[in-house]
Design a protein around this nucleic acid. Structure first.
Length: 206
DNA sequence: CGCTTTTGACCGGCGC
DNA sequence: GCGCCGGTCAAAAGCG
């Protein structure tokens, strides 16, 4: 998986609010072709799980660059900006009368969530970013041969989602869109760091 | 048995 | 109002 450069895609960071309301091209995802610095410098596959996870960690001072970038890119997703869709607000499907149910559950109000997309060249649709995801949907997308998959972070309190889709133009390219910021540490990162932390604890005893 | 994936149904927004 | 579309739900199936 190598980082894709130099396609005629909007540069990053993009400003959703400044995007004209005109209809989007068929591939309706707004794709960033310039990754945050860390991602530019290394291919995603070259990144260890921990590295990539660290980029996505919501640590306060760890990766401000990414955080800021996400906020700039986020606020309103492109689709939201375009359609006025409040993804968090909708009450979801269900076969029977789920409306009341959803309301009873008190599901969601509108929150502008940071959202960013990046593309990678990979045979695998799923790249290991260190978090655990559960797939909750898959949809055929118009003008695209490949379906779009919807994932949610499995952590109970975490509401981060991501969408994964292959470009119809170039099958080898996978577009991953993250929505939201994890409110918990990455398990795999913690696993990787725990021996180190133990060592540090040990040495700080003296 | 618990967790994940699959998949068809459903919902709301938008354009016509 | 209707149909299209993207996003989500949830039952059933699959898997370790």
């Amino acid at each position: 998986m190598e980082h894709i450069q130099g396609e005629s895609l909007p540069s990053f960071p993009y400003f959703p609010d400044s995007i004209s309301p005109s209809p989007l091209p068929s591939e309706s995802l707004q794709i960033s072709n310039q990754l945050p610095l860390q991602l530019q410098q290394e291919s995603l596959r070259g990144l260890g799980t921990a590295d990539l996870a660290a980029l996505l960690l919501p640590t306060p001072n760890g990766h401000r660059e990414v955080q800021e970038m996400m906020q700039v890119a986020g606020g309103s997703s492109l689709i939201k900006a375009r359609r006025g869709d409040q993804g968090e607000q909708r009450h979801g499907g269900g076969k029977e009368n789920v409306k009341g149910k959803a309301a009873a559950v008190g599901r969601t109000k509108k929150v502008n969530r940071p959202r960013f997309a990046f593309q990678t060249r990979s045979a695998d649709d799923i790249l290991d970013d260190g978090y655990r995801w559960r797939k909750y949907g898959q949809k055929a997308v118009k003008n695209s041969v490949h379906p779009r998959s919807y994932y949610r972070c499995t952590h109970h309190t975490c509401n981060v989602k991501k969408q994964v889709q292959r470009l119809s133009k170039d099958t080898s390219i996978v577009v991953t869109t993250y929505e939201g910021v994890h409110n918990h540490p990455c398990e795999k990162l913690m696993e990787a760091l725990s021996p180190l932390l133990k060592q540090i604890q040990f040495f700080t005893q003296f």
